[in-house]
Design a binder for these strands. Structure first.
Lengths: 220, 220
DNA sequence: TAATAATATGATATTATTATAACATGATTA
DNA sequence: TAATCATGTTATAATAATATCATATTATTA
């Protein structure tokens, strides 16, 4: 189930929104204390944020900017008809959409579902053969096994997983690993791949990474 | 460069849109004769369609349905604020997004670029006799078979497929394969063609590449 | 139809590319 | 301070793509 954070200071509207979304099958999280909106929004870990443009303490645009510095969660700005200029601003600051008050429930729901559909398409898959990639912990784990990966191995695996089934060139991998560093022996990548393969094989994932000579690697 | 088809009957708006998009670096194609919108839209072969919901002869929704029967080109519906119900309908008929008139240029451009980014990611395959050439995967595949091609084979097949039904000279192929390399035995190409033919035949694609002596090769 | 040029193909050789193991270094941690 | 670990480097081995060669098969033209 998708979780939506509502940042709206008008209590009546907030509750109405929350009801509407719950009826539509979403999980909602309402912010009520606006002295600390940013942290609450970020720690709520939701899939979408409804952000009113006029909030106490820190207004919606400022908040949006702060959110964007830390996260790519889709944001829908809520504005009043009178402040159309704001719409432009918000979008260029990274909002994904906006609605004007008074809002039309059907349209709001449509926009929400459109955006969620879009963003879930983009969201990279984080599991592989029953193993979940936990990049925060730096490991790959299923029920019984836990494969601890080093920083390099993690980067490589992530790159491959992002494009699972597609060829990832050695150049891409080199860039991901050592972008702006001075010259690094080309074989370093080969060695890192080799080590990653070793760890995967140790846990029973054999032949996951295939070599396509002169083209790159591919995660099957 | 991306090409956008504009289906909008209000001349002023149409020209304005076209200007806006051209300035943003898109190629545009405007429909002016609406007695035959569908064919024009389909034959324009563009990357995205801006479709007004109120058009003469056949309205936007009908058009959208017809378009969807033949193609997956992304469509952005253009509606007026007054006809909000239409938005609901359009989205469920398969529009990818919509904007309301009077539209905000910044937002329109944002939506366009978001959709194009999404769709260009998906479009990688060209197909041949039910086989899809997937250069990202470096293979040629249908439901059951998957033919892995080497780099050279891929280059050759791509060249031939790009000009399917037309003769591709040996020189063109040589250039595509070994452009800035020093002298390479002319027979190398022949051998590579031969190997490619072998792989195709192994998967049941016989006689796909025909030799036209003194002229080149042609993919039937 | 014979002669010639162009292309095919199988076998072999070559080379670039990648793999692996062993070592070196520096950072982190106990 | 010792021990462990990540990771780059070096040296050497394995591999696969692919160019070349020799020979066979076609097509073109005389």
């Amino acid at each position: 189930m998708h979780r939506i954070t509502i940042a709206e200071d008008d209590k009546a509207i907030r509750n109405e929104l929350s009801e509407l979304l719950k009826n539509a099958g979403y999980d909602t999280f309402c912010i009520t204390d606006f002295s600390d909106s940013l942290n609450q929004i970020l720690s709520a870990d939701s899939d979408l944020i409804l952000l009113d443009i006029n909030l106490p303490h820190m207004n919606g645009e400022q908040l949006l900017m702060e959110i964007r510095r830390k996260s790519d969660i889709p944001v829908i700005m809520v504005t009043s008809r009178t402040t159309e200029i704001d719409e432009v601003m918000s979008m260029s600051y990274g909002a994904d959409d906006y609605i004007t008050k008074p809002y039309n429930p059907t349209i709001l729901l449509l926009r929400i579902s459109a955006i969620l559909k879009r963003s879930s398409k983009e969201k990279v898959c984080t599991s592989y053969h029953g193993f979940k990639l936990n990049s925060a912990k730096g490991c790959l784990s299923d029920d019984k096994t836990e494969i601890t990966l080093t920083k390099n191995e993690l980067i490589i695996f992530q790159q491959l997983l992002d494009k699972q089934g597609e060829i990832v060139t050695r150049d891409e991998l080199m860039t991901a690993l050592w972008d702006n560093e001075e010259y690094i022996n080309d074989n370093a990548l080969t060695v890192n791949i080799s080590r990653l393969r070793g760890k995967l094989a140790d846990s029973g994932i054999e032949d996951a990474i295939e070599t396509r000579k002169k083209q790159g690697y591919i995660l099957k």
